[in-house]
Design a protein around this nucleic acid. Sequence first.
DNA 1: TATTATAGTGAACGAAAGGTCACCTGTCAA
DNA 2: TTGACAGGTGACCTTTCGTTCACTATAATA
Lengths: 198, 198
Amino acid sequence: MANDTKERILAAALEMFSQNGYAGTNIRELSASLGLVKSGVYKHFESKEAIWNALLNQMIAYYGAHFGSPEHLPPVPDSLEGLVTMTMQMVKFTVHDEKVIMTRKLLTLEQFRDVRARELATKHFLTGLTDMFTHIFAGMMEQGLLRRDDPAMLAFAYTAPISALIHLCDREPEKTEKAIAQIEAFSRHFVKVYGSLS
Amino acid sequence: MANDTKERILAAALEMFSQNGYAGTNIRELSASLGLVKSGVYKHFESKEAIWNALLNQMIAYYGAHFGSPEHLPPVPDSLEGLVTMTMQMVKFTVHDEKVIMTRKLLTLEQFRDVRARELATKHFLTGLTDMFTHIFAGMMEQGLLRRDDPAMLAFAYTAPISALIHLCDREPEKTEKAIAQIEAFSRHFVKVYGSLS
DNA sequence: TATTATAGTGAACGAAAGGTCACCTGTCAA
DNA sequence: TTGACAGGTGACCTTTCGTTCACTATAATA
């Protein structure tokens, strides 16, 4: 049947939920944005909540597939400058990719209402990043690039400020460029402080 | 007249808006939680949006009165341990005070919808804290307690991770104790790294 | 005491919400 | 050719929303 309407509904839902929240979104507008009428949506989902659940499942699955398992860990940089470069690549992607932005906003808006959104939010905003950089920093310490220290603590100290500025970009997109520059400055400050040469 | 109903409405609105968001809150429930009937609220506010505006004005005024001006800056600690102590005092207050928690949640939920909420959110979550600790760290550097460095950068590196864990407490209150311990560990890590004795 | 403003009630209203249903239409398999 | 079905339409239903209004009780004021 070549039917991608279901996927298009989920895409539109992500867009509207991330902007106006679940409660602030209505099926009429959502349908209209797809060029169909409200009842058409109910051919694909049995309720508004079903759309929400499907969207959340999709996000959870996506996160699991891309960041959930150890095999998706990025390579350990072989220099301090490599850490900065890798960081900036990831940051530039994450603050410019519309779908990623909307995912973060959605999790921000629904974290207090839905337990699964809450858990995914914590992964997205906190533990996912620290886990990833714990691994990276442990590797860099082994290579003698970073001062020996608790890699988890360093990862937390490194990723939390970056995460804060990513949130700023979501909140005030016009500050994105400035925030990226700030992240790079922070990253360089970090390698200066924790690099083994200091 | 002894009429505090207006204030009670605002308090209830803070509670409901911070839990369910503006769109997810209805006047019936809000009135009921105060033991009055829906139309009674309209004796004090002409619309739901008027309640929102009054609440936001109150929050903005409160923030301005308590954190807005330089005279409210905390004293500069006279030791590294003093920094940790002061930090933990502030943190324990901010993660346990119901009103402060609800304020943060509300700003989190409405930051994408309302420009003034957005600006206050940035102050609350980012610039307010960094500004405050920029002043503190500059003072501590003058006293020779901290290594000479850019105090604004240090303030950012110090407050952003703490802020991230405060957000975690808002999202998952059952992790509050653990998060507080993590903040203390991070604070001690920070003074170890940046203290002038290192 | 008479008056008047205040705070609250309860019924009602129109709009908008989520959801249902009978119906239409094009596609594909038997 | 026919029948089944997926996908879409438009009218309609019920509930809930924010809001209004006539009315009442109360307490201060003139």
